[in-house]
C-alpha cells in the first residue's frame, strides 16, 4: 500500500511538473494571442496586464486595412505552394533514380547532394543572388521559387524510402510490359505515399518561414511574403504592437493548424530528419 501511494505521489508530482512546463513553454504564444486583442494603451500599461479587458477584433480588421496583408498572405501561399509542388515532383524522381538505377556519375551526384546538406544557405547567398539577378529574376515569383525547387534533404528522404520498395515489384511490371514512366507513377509513387506527405510537411515548414532570401530577392511591396511583410511592418509602425501581434497570429496560424491536424505525421517527419524511422 505505501508503495502504491508513493507511486501515485510521483505521478501527481510528474503531472504538476509537466503542466508547469507546458504553461511556461506556451507563455510567449499565449501572450501573442492575448496582446493581439489589446488596445495600444493596454499593452503599454506598466501595470502588467495578462488578458485584454475586451476582445478587440478591430486590430485584425486594421491589419488588413492598414497594410498589404492580403497581398503578403497570398504571396506566401502561392510561393510556398509552388515550392512544395516542385519538391514533390522532383525529389521522388531523383530519389528513385538514386535508389534503383546505376549509371555513370551517380555516386558523384549522391555525394554532392549529401554534401550540400552541410552548406549553410548564407554561404551561397551572394552568388545565388548574382545568378538570379543574371537571369533577370530579382523581384519575380520564379526568383523566389526556383532556387528552392529541390532540397538535398528531400531527395535523400525519398531515396531512403524508395530503396525499401522491392525490386521484384518493378521487374514484374517490366515483364508485364509496363513502361518505365508508368512504373514510376503507378507503382513507385503510390507505395511511398506516406513519405510524400512527410516531405510536403517538411518543405512547407521551411518555405513558409523563409526570410533572408525573400529579403534579398524582393524589392518593394508586391512580392513580399508574410515574414518580410511583418518585419517591414515592424519598421514602419514601431509602437503598434497590437497590430503586429494580430498580424503575427495570422502568419503563425497556418503552420499551427497543419501541425495540429497532421500531428503524428508531422512529428515523424521532423524526427525523420535524422534518417531514423
Amino acid at each position: 500500500m505505501p508503495r502504491s501511494m508513493a507511486r501515485l505521489f510521483m505521478v501527481v508530482l510528474g503531472q504538476i511538473a509537466l503542466l508547469a512546463g507546458a504553461i511556461l513553454i506556451m507563455t510567449p504564444v499565449l501572450y501573442m494571442v492575448s496582446a493581439s486583442f489589446m488596445t495600444n494603451d493596454e499593452i503599454f500599461s506598466t501595470r502588467f496586464q495578462i488578458l485584454p479587458s475586451n476582445l478587440n477584433w478591430g486590430n485584425y480588421i486594421e491589419v488588413f486595412a492598414r497594410f498589404n496583408f492580403m497581398r503578403y498572405l497570398s504571396n506566401s501561399v502561392f510561393v510556398t505552394g509552388a515550392i512544395v509542388f516542385l519538391n514533390l515532383l522532383f525529389s521522388p524522381m531523383i530519389g528513385y533514380s538514386l535508389a534503383k538505377f546505376d549509371y555513370p556519375g551517380k555516386n558523384i551526384l549522391m555525394l554532392f547532394i549529401l554534401a550540400t546538406v552541410m552548406v549553410p544557405f548564407t554561404a551561397i547567398l551572394i552568388p545565388l543572388f548574382l545568378i538570379v539577378r543574371g537571369l533577370g529574376w530579382v523581384n519575380t515569383y520564379q526568383g523566389l521559387i526556383v532556387p528552392f525547387a529541390m532540397s538535398a534533404f528531400g531527395v535523400f528522404l525519398m531515396r531512403q524510402f524508395i530503396i525499401s520498395v522491392p525490386d521484384d515489384y518493378l521487374d514484374a511490371a517490366r515483364i508485364d510490359g509496363a513502361g518505365e514512366f508508368r512504373i514510376y507513377f503507378q507503382i513507385v509513387l503510390p507505395l511511398i505515399q506516406p513519405a510524400l506527405i512527410t516531405l510536403a510537411i517538411i518543405v512547407f515548414v521551411a518555405s513558409w518561414d523563409e526570410f533572408l532570401w525573400v529579403l534579398v530577392a524582393t524589392a518593394g511591396d508586391t512580392l513580399r511574403t508574410l515574414p518580410i511583410g511583418l518585419a517591414k511592418f515592424r519598421e514602419q509602425y514601431q509602437t503598434r504592437f497590437e497590430l503586429m501581434m494580430a498580424g503575427s497570429v495570422i502568419a503563425a496560424a497556418p503552420m499551427v493548424v497543419v501541425f495540429l491536424a497532421l500531428q503524428r505525421r508531422f512529428l515523424q517527419g521532423m524526427a525523420g530528419l535524422s534518417g531514423l524511422k
Binding site: Y31, M32, V205, D209, L226, I228, L230, A231, M244
Partner: peptide, 14 residues
Amino acid sequence: VISLTVWSLIWLLM
C-alpha cells in the same frame, strides 16, 4: 511550428 519571424516579434514585446 511558430514562424521564426513571428517568434522574434513576440520576444520584441517580451
